[in-house]
Amino acid sequence: MKFTIYRFNPETDPSPRIQEFFLDDDVLDREMMLLDALLLLKAQDETLTFRRSCGEGVCGSDGMNVNGRNLLACITPLFSLKTPVDIRPMPGLPVVRDLIIDMQQFYRQYRAVDPYLVNKDPEPEVERLQSPADREKLDGLYECILCGCCSTSCPSFWWNPDKFLGPAALLQSWRFLADSRDQATDERLANLAGPFKLFRCHTIMNCMEVCPKGLNPTRAIGRIKELMVKRSI
């Protein structure tokens, strides 16, 4: 099986290059995920660099762009991919080395939406209760693992990474706006004001298309806009 992989070390290489790798069919099996193949390739060439941790789509470390699409290597069956498998770092953020990108900008955007519960009431004895119906509103929102597949596939994020918050952060913003226990709705909406932070989203829908957890940031962004309209009229 043939792989073409993006190689770049900004400290020593003048420019990125594409390196070809091969894996013999006898080392492959049908159950393999792409990450397993990458580990075999790393055994061939230990300078090949990528992030990985849990290996089961929970930690969100091994987001990469494979055959033009952002995905998690650990939950992508190897034989679902067309060969040669073209592997690159996720687009739109600076490359640290090979498939590893600098996620600072992504985390800044995440922090910018205050991704935590804001509740000014005195803390109750046990816990802040929520009806099952209210809890259900958070399904499809809380599961985000911050892998960055969505934001780095979003053209609006590529164009204005410093001003547009990106789908991942906006999904989290809605996650807390939708939470019955959260009391900072006005502050959260005011924080998203202006033409950039939220309204650079043009409903391109790459985010929901690539999300490895099957979440839908586009819909969440739509809900935020709806809530803004309701609150301002």
Partner: peptide
């Protein structure tokens, strides 16, 4: 909500 209207 004032101030949030320009984008909206």
């Amino acid at each position: 909500m004032s101030g949030s209207t320009d984008g909206l």
